[in-house]
Write a protein that binds this DNA or RNA. Sequence first.
DNA 1: CCGGTATTTGCTCATATGAGCAACAATTCC
DNA 2: GGAATTGTTGCTCATATGAGCAAATACCGG
Lengths: 318, 318
Amino acid sequence: MSDTDELLSIRAAELYYEENQTQDEIGVILRLTRWKVGRLLASAKANGFIRIEIVHPRARRLPIERRLRESTGLTDAIVVSSAGVSSEAELQSRTAQAAADFLSSLRPIPRTLGISWGRTLHDVSLHLKQGWAPGVNVVQINGGVSLNQRTGTAASTAVTIAHKADGSATLLPCPAVFERLETKQAMEADRAVAGVLALARNAQAYLFSAGQADANSALVDSGFLTVEQIDDLVSRGAVGDVVGRYIDANGRIVDPELNERTVGIQIDQLRRAPLTIAVISGNDKHAIARAVVRNGLCTVLVTDENTANALLQEKDTL
Amino acid sequence: MSDTDELLSIRAAELYYEENQTQDEIGVILRLTRWKVGRLLASAKANGFIRIEIVHPRARRLPIERRLRESTGLTDAIVVSSAGVSSEAELQSRTAQAAADFLSSLRPIPRTLGISWGRTLHDVSLHLKQGWAPGVNVVQINGGVSLNQRTGTAASTAVTIAHKADGSATLLPCPAVFERLETKQAMEADRAVAGVLALARNAQAYLFSAGQADANSALVDSGFLTVEQIDDLVSRGAVGDVVGRYIDANGRIVDPELNERTVGIQIDQLRRAPLTIAVISGNDKHAIARAVVRNGLCTVLVTDENTANALLQEKDTL
DNA sequence: CCGGTATTTGCTCATATGAGCAACAATTCC
DNA sequence: GGAATTGTTGCTCATATGAGCAAATACCGG
């Protein structure tokens, strides 16, 4: 398109989108036929000069969702818009809301839902509406009873989700990681714990988040791991954790020994499950999001626009 | 509108604007009639959830231009969009381009055009196209021969504008400010200088910029004033300068004595002229822009979106 | 519970717009 | 210079959309 046509297309766009003139009226003003105006408008769009954004906390980015589905084989992808967000927290809240929406609209409604715990899932639980489902048995899929107040959220997340669904919560009364393998094995042998784990393994759907491998991890916060241990895991290729287990970019367990001492369902059980919903948002979680998606650890990803774009970027450069 | 309708309007907007579905198709997806979809879309727009931006260096903001004209009595207002700009310099360049465009499209073409000098006008001169007018006599309206290399731009701005119009430039071979009143009067008595000033007073149109009153002023840069003098002017209410003369928020000369020692047309001559084009852009120029517009120093304002919004804001709070 | 008011819905009809096509113009290549 | 090709223009026609209106529904004070 000629240079002067480009300029005309901008003038036309101003009159069309900002002044709500019809293409006919614009034609009179710019001394063009209305067909020419239509073509200029189309070219302005094609050249990307017209940017249309939906600015709303609940806005999603459907084209990105579609590209994600196509390029990753995910069953579904939910991508919340980052248009107009002013803080990372706001973006995470939007993502949690979207996860709650997705969960609420899920058909058939899962009878048992396995969940992990953490800030993200807690956020999701708060965004669910009372009565979002008619009775769901929520079961924890990894240990979460910890040494400090963070404990509360693990249990309360499950209880809240279950309560709002007029259902029941089955807690896993157990730390995330044991120091000694023997203690862990003993614990798992316990009837109560074994029962919960069996239930967890047979859940119809899983909802979980993931953490980036760094000093801010919930596992460190709760006292299960030290910053030094995380550093060590990172140096061995860890990008983050899923249900308390640290994986590398290829989805492999980084430290099998540590993995053995970790209570909860195995990564492979997630891989095999037919419906696994990962909720991952935040600029520091791109690496772990990539690991989760690339290695089939989830069938549904709920995330934010920035993270989604990072995943797509990645695909492009393959 | 109900809460659930708001959410529906966002879903509809996603399908309409991002997925290019027809309202009919959206109706099928959301289980609504197509009329309802149309209404939801309209409400999304009315609620400001749909943001349409024209992202292009030449894009203007017509609604803001209109509001500016209506609220200030300007004959014309040109407001360049700040969508997608990454630096203040880029915004100023866009504004200069718009000023050049406006000048080029001016009818009737002024036979003599009075201009001031400075970074902004120099920028405008560079953006003009060769042959933008068939012969214009460009005359400097304030002194500009200075003590250092900045000199060049004052003369070259006039020469460039004239040259590109296949016209002639009449320079004012004279400093902006004299130290002694007597010297200035002697200079003005000189036939050559008096002739240029007479020409300047009778120009059919004026093109000028304005400077914020601070240490970065071109007057300081060129050595006509010291930072201390500026500080003094500011303390006496100066907001900036127009054709080398410092005015306060009410458009009044701040220092009559200094004004007397300044060479060029008077502020009142601008006020009386039928076509005076002010080009003012930049976040630090809101105050001087306001003074210029509020006190009728220009009939046409070329500015950027941020400055224009600042002017409108101001009006709202009156 | 009921009459009246306000809001929402489904519709008709006029208008705005995009797809597709033939005629035309411009450019390239021999 | 002229034929071939490419791109552009003006158009017809089918479709999408918004305005306006009557019917239906929801809301509210008694």
